Simulated assay, not measured.
Amino acid sequence: MNEKWREIASEIKAIYGNKDYVALHEPTFNEKEIEYVTDCIKTGWVSSVGKYVNEFEKKLAEYTGVKRAVAVVNGTAALHIALKVAGVKENDEVFMPALTFVATANAASYLNAIPHFVDVSEKTLGLDPVKLKEHIHDIGEFKNGQLINKLTGRIIRAVVPMHTFGHSVDLDPLIDICQQYNLILVEDAAESLGSYYKGKHTGGFGVVSALSFNGNKIMTTGGGGAILTNNEKLADYAKHITTTAKIPHQWEYYHDEIGYNYRMPNINAALGYAQLEKMDDFLASKRQLTKQYHQLLKKINGVKVFKENSFEMSNYWLQAILIDPQKHERDNVLGILNAEGVMARPIWSPLSELAPYMHCPKADLTMTNHLNKIVINIPSTPVKGESYD
């Protein structure tokens, strides 16, 4: 079986032009990025003021189908501010999946709120609405229009589903739960730019949502993120506090509350503006890569490529494979692929097992613990095509 995995590594390298080393995900640039970034440098507008910031926000809102987008320095900052403007307060509990990148929990912690970990679904790899409802039934009490955790006495304020590797959570039942228990829906859409749930772009369902444009995302601004919302008032507030809460004035510096220096620099927005123009190419290439992996990995018994559900269209940001632990040992597979020059990694450690979050409330995490042992990410960079070579 080890030899079979070495063959797979060789064939993955062939997909990527027989490189000596294939990274998990790399950005793809061409002349447009150079043109727009060079324009920033020539004009001197490289920081948080400049035409590309506003234009990128408009183009992003249009692409995702929301009224407003507010560009910030990274996805964690976007989620931090999304939770803040949505109304999450100190000592509130926030439902979130235990199987997600640590930023989901960190963003809540920045507000002195408490992550409350819930299990995920094998169907979506994201927060499981059925398990969430069962957990609420076990620990929740609805009093005076608020959901209270009977075990801690704290208000449970919000639900933060994360669209894992670009695959949408099943949102309709989550929305029903939020309406039933007066919970705020804040989408962690950091990985799902270009993904749709029942024909509507992810990030458009929450009161507010967060995107990431890190260098490894489907499109990048180098570092960066954005807050999405259909609420103009929340968008204005988000823009204000991410610009150090400075009151606009020709020369005076006056700040009316504690703010954050989170605004995206113009030079990063220029990069994003060019990248957004190529999203259709990126998405088509991602889907083609999924088909290639599906054909390739059929050769190994006990391995399957994770594929989108009927209710969604995934951006397939990171390719995920699920291995049968009775037939394959995860760390052995990871060792072979990486030794052969094909970067592969396991899914994140459950947040409930990380030192800063071991004390946090949690539901039964059976599926989280199962998936943690069987999910592997493999190279996912869009294979270059003629339209953006």
Rank of each mutant, 00 (worst) to 15 (best):
L99S: 06
L99C: 07
L99W: 10
T100Y: 07
F101I: 11
A105F: 06
N106E: 14
A107S: 15
A107T: 01
A107Q: 04
A108W: 10
A108Q: 11
A108D: 11
S109E: 13
S109G: 00
Y110G: 00
L111T: 02
L111V: 01
N112D: 11
N112W: 01
I114M: 04
I114G: 01
I114E: 10
I114T: 11
I114H: 13
P115I: 04
P115E: 04
F117H: 05
V118K: 07
V118L: 08
V120C: 13
V120M: 06
V120N: 09
S121D: 09
E122R: 14
E122D: 12
L125E: 06
G126T: 13
L127H: 05
L127K: 05
D128K: 03
V130N: 13
V130Q: 12
V130F: 12
K131E: 15
K131G: 11
K131C: 00
K133F: 07
E134Q: 13
E134G: 05
E134A: 13
H135T: 11
H137T: 14
G140K: 04
E141Q: 13
K143F: 05
K143V: 15
G145Y: 12
G145D: 10
G145R: 14
Q146H: 13
Q146I: 07
Q146G: 00
Q146Y: 09
Q146K: 15
L147F: 08
L147Q: 07
N149T: 06
N149Y: 07
L151G: 02
L151Q: 15
T152R: 04
T152Q: 07
G153M: 03
I155N: 14
I155S: 11
I156Q: 04
R157W: 03
R157L: 04
A158V: 03
A158M: 02
V159F: 05
V160Q: 02
H163G: 09
H163I: 06
T164G: 00
F165D: 15
G166S: 11
H167Q: 10
S168E: 08
V169A: 15
V169Y: 07
D170I: 01
D170L: 12
L171W: 10
I175G: 08
I175M: 14
D176I: 00
C178D: 08
C178K: 03
Q179R: 14
Q179T: 00
Q179S: 12
Q180C: 03
Q180V: 06
Y181P: 03
L183P: 00
E187T: 01
E187W: 01
D188I: 05
D188W: 06
A189G: 05
A190H: 01
G194L: 08
S195F: 06
Y196E: 14
Y196P: 03
Y196F: 15
Y197F: 14
K198I: 04
K198P: 07
G199M: 10
K200V: 14
H201L: 04
F205C: 09
F205P: 02
G206Y: 05
V207I: 15
S209I: 00
S209H: 01
L211Q: 05
L211V: 02
S212V: 02
F213E: 00
N214D: 15
K217H: 13
K217L: 13
I218Q: 13
T220K: 09
T221C: 13
T221F: 12
G222F: 08
G222D: 11
G224I: 02
G225D: 03
I227C: 06
I227V: 13
T229G: 12
